[in-house]
């Protein structure tokens, strides 16, 4: 059994290509480019792109190439860990709750209801406020909100699979839990979990940028897309080219993951 059947539609290929190109840019930048995201050089105030600095410099003369590379790596890193955590946690608990029901289901639903009482971003904001500028706290807060979606979807799908005649027939024939999971539950989860993973990546990138934009996320001089937007905003008249860079990066990341996810929920 192949774990993932990779059959993408054209729009999904476009999305994959967008993400891949950003990823390659971010990795190549780390490997080949010698600039540092926090190194200031006030003589290079808001330079247009040129031979030395392909993407120009910001208001402190910092290399935009280095800053963009670093910010995109940060976004990928955070979304990767958040999605990984929430997919594993949400799917595992969702299958448990949907399959076993009973008290496991009740306890988990209680926890989920508490977490969902507040809009996700507010919860993230409050948590981020406790430890300002901490990458770990952002990771924890975003994952805490993100896994809920997986849990709910996986639980619902599992419940359908568990009560299906298909699974009942296999159970009658004497098959054990591993077989039932492999043949009946996983196939019904597979596509939704992958779709949700792509949406989740887009959402965690959005959340990180949003927090940065209202100065609640990571703190300067870290290069982070949302933070860069708000820092460069006052200079948009002088250097619209520089402001466009983080905006385009966010746009491509989110659109790329949304396209990859395929049909909306």
């Amino acid at each position: 059994m192949s774990l993932v059947t990779l059959r993408l539609r054209p729009s999904q290929w476009v999305g994959a290509a967008m993400i891949l190109s950003l990823l390659i840019f971010a990795l190549l930048e780390a490997w080949l480019h010698s600039g540092h995201y926090a190194k200031q050089n006030l003589a290079n105030y808001l330079m247009m792109p040129n031979v030395q600095e392909w993407l120009g410099t910001d208001q402190f003369g910092r290399s935009m190439m280095a800053r963009m590379g670093s910010a995109i790596r940060l976004s990928f890193l955070l979304s990767f860990f958040c999605v990984l955590t929430s997919v594993l946690l949400g799917s595992f608990l969702g299958v448990m709750a949907g399959w076993y029901g009973g008290w496991i289901d009740r306890v988990l639903n209680w926890v989920v209801n508490i977490l969902m009482a507040l809009p996700g971003l507010i919860l993230v904001l409050l948590l981020a406020a406790i430890l300002p500028g901490s990458f770990l706290m952002l990771y924890f807060a975003i994952s805490l909100v993100l896994w809920l979606e997986y849990y709910r979807v996986v639980r619902a799908l599992t419940q359908v699979a568990v009560s299906s005649p298909q699974m009942e027939a296999s159970r009658q024939l004497g098959f054990g839990r591993f077989y039932l999971f492999k043949r009946h539950i996983w196939p019904s989860l597979q596509s939704s979990v992958l779709t949700l993973a792509a949406f989740g990546a887009a959402n965690s990138i959005l959340a990180l940028a949003s927090l940065g934009f209202i100065y609640v996320g990571l703190q300067p001089p870290v290069a982070e897309l949302g933070l860069m937007v708000v820092e460069l905003l006052p200079y948009f008249d002088e250097a619209p080219w520089i402001l466009m860079q983080p905006l385009v990066a966010i746009f491509m990341l989110v659109l790329g993951f949304n396209l990859l996810a395929g049909k909306a929920k």
């Binding site: 959005l206 949003s210 949302g226 905006l247 966010i250 989110v254 659109l255 949304n258 396209l259």
Partner: peptide, 14 residues
């Protein structure tokens, strides 16, 4: 709609 959904709300505002 796909293009709008790919923007954080603050970018649309901007």
């Amino acid at each position: 709609s796909a293009l709008l959904r790919a923007q954080p709300v603050f970018v649309i505002g901007l």
